[in-house]
Every structure is written in structure tokens, then in C-alpha cells.
Write a protein that binds this DNA or RNA. Structure first.
Lengths: 134, 134
DNA sequence: GTTAGAATATGATAAAAATCAGATTTAGGA
DNA sequence: TCCTAAATCTGATTTTTATCATATTCTAAC
């Protein structure tokens, strides 16, 4: 997530960045970051170009993607969507014991991830409304 | 969490249960469950008695404990309380890029864990309002 | 075309979390 | 008092996740 936002902030089709120029800026080990970015690239969440002048970057299309894409690719679609007690049939009709504790908090969060694009976030960062450190 | 709720439902000072009678009911490996229960017992979230006629159980006092205690003992206090981007200084004054996506969803959840006791949950289970399977 | 610089692919290692196993302590009952 | 049944303690093993290393493929520029 940090890496994608960082790339969104600093790259586009004409300005790419290599892993070795990113990992130090966001405090993520180089090799791990490389694997994550490759995974995101493979699933077309971010873009990449090989060879000299190559690197990772976010195209205009990439930047319009909802944030949930990043989560789904890296952590899997179940990560945010499964019941707290891992009960398959848990829903508002047949709620598990913890269901009401979450209430709509989780779906609220998921919907935000679905309705917010990468571009939306960097607007706020550029405006100084939010921060993206380390 | 499942184990504690299960114990809350089936035990008290006069009716204890051993790990071997619990793990199968909640689909948790015996040894892992044993370690978790010992940890909870050590921190007085649940009660235990050694020797014959011994076992784990929830005292009346245990049952009045807020659910957050379980999370804090097992996963640590930071598990639910740290910023999504792991930024130390992230708060509403100085929000990280993802801060508003969570909004009050997380604090809503945490407050529910703080304000709901184990006993509160088993009332609903006993009334058939919620389920506690596997 | 050749070279060099980048991502990509693949598998190995390290660290963390989950799980297992066994020795130790405690307590109830004969 | 002794035996047995339970939790407790400790460390080992397994599994998962994170991290590393390296060979391969692609591509821009000369």
C-alpha cells in the first residue's frame, strides 16, 4: 500500500522508478518489495517496463483503480471479507456471536476501499491534508 | 475467542472443562488451544484448577470481563490500535493517507470490545439470537 | 546486432506464528 | 501417604510468511 501510494505520487508513464530507489523511502526490505511489486504488476495494478530506462510506475489507468485491488492481490479476497470467527454462513440473517460487534464497521471500510481510487488519496497527500511518511 | 465463549457457555466454578474436551468442539488443535488457554489463565482472563477434577472455567468475575481483554492478551494491545500504515504519529490531527478510509470504524469496533462483556455475548447465544459453531 | 540495465521467475533461507511433545507442578481422592 | 489427573512450563518441530539470492528475459540505446 505504501509502495503503490509512493509510486502514485512520484511516477507516471514518463517517470519510472526502480525498486532500489523506492524501498529505502518507505522502509520496506528491497527483496520483499520487489516481490510485491512484481505481483501487483502481474495483476495489472501497477505498470512496469524492463531494460534500461525501465522501472515501475503507475499509469493514468492504474491510478484510477480502487484501493481494494491492492488488498485483493496481495492478501487475497478473503482477508477483509471473512467472518471474525471464520464461520462460512455468518451474515445478518445468521450472525455469529461477534457479528454485531463489528456491525457495519467492516463493510464501511471495505466500501471505502472499493470507492476510493489511488488517485483520490494522492490528491489529499499533495494538498497536505494527509501524510505518507517512511 | 471461540474457546472463551465456549467456556463461558459451558463452565463455571463447579463445572470445569479440560482442553481435550474443548478443542474438538471448536476446531482448534489441542496443543495450540492449551497454550492459548494457559496464557489467558496466567493473565486472569479465565480460571483454571490443576489436578483431578480440575480444568479451565470462567468464574462469574471472568464472565464480566470486556472482550478486549482477550484480544490484548493473545494478540497484544497494538494489534487493533495501530495505524494502517504503521505510522506512530497518525491521528486525526495528523492523519496518514489511509486514515479517513477507516474513519471511526475501527474505534467503533474497539469500543464495542471494551463495552461488551463475555457474559453479554453468551446471553445472545443462549437466546438463539447469535450462533457459536464449530 | 551487441551490450547493459531493468523487471521477471524460481527457488532458497530466515523469521514469525502455530503446533507438538514431554517433563514438572499441583491437587484430589483412596 | 501415595497415586493419578489435571494444568503449567519449556523447548522442539512444523507451517506460514517474509526476505534473500540468482539466473533468465526483455528492451532501449549505441
Amino acid at each position: 500500500m505504501k509502495a503503490v501510494l509512493f509510486l502514485a505520487l512520484h511516477t507516471d508513464e514518463d517517470h519510472k522508478m526502480m525498486v532500489k530507489d523506492v524501498y529505502g523511502r518507505i522502509n520496506v526490505p528491497q527483496s520483499y518489495l520487489a516481490k510485491l511489486l512484481q505481483e501487483l504488476s502481474k495483476h495489472n495494478v501497477i505498470s512496469s517496463a524492463r531494460g534500461p530506462k525501465g522501472g515501475f510506475y503507475l499509469s493514468a489507468i492504474n491510478k484510477e483503480l480502487p484501493l481494494i485491488k491492492i488488498v485483493d492481490v496481495i492478501d487475497g479476497e478473503q482477508r477483509l471479507r471473512s467472518c471474525l470467527l471464520s464461520i462460512k454462513e455468518c451474515d445478518s440473517e445468521n450472525p455469529c456471536a461477534l457479528h454485531h460487534l463489528v456491525g457495519n464497521a467492516n463493510s464501511y471500510f471495505i466500501e471505502n476501499l472499493e470507492n476510493t481510487s489511488i488517485a483520490d488519496l494522492i490528491v489529499d497527500v499533495r494538498d497536505g491534508k494527509t501524510v505518507l511518511p517512511l
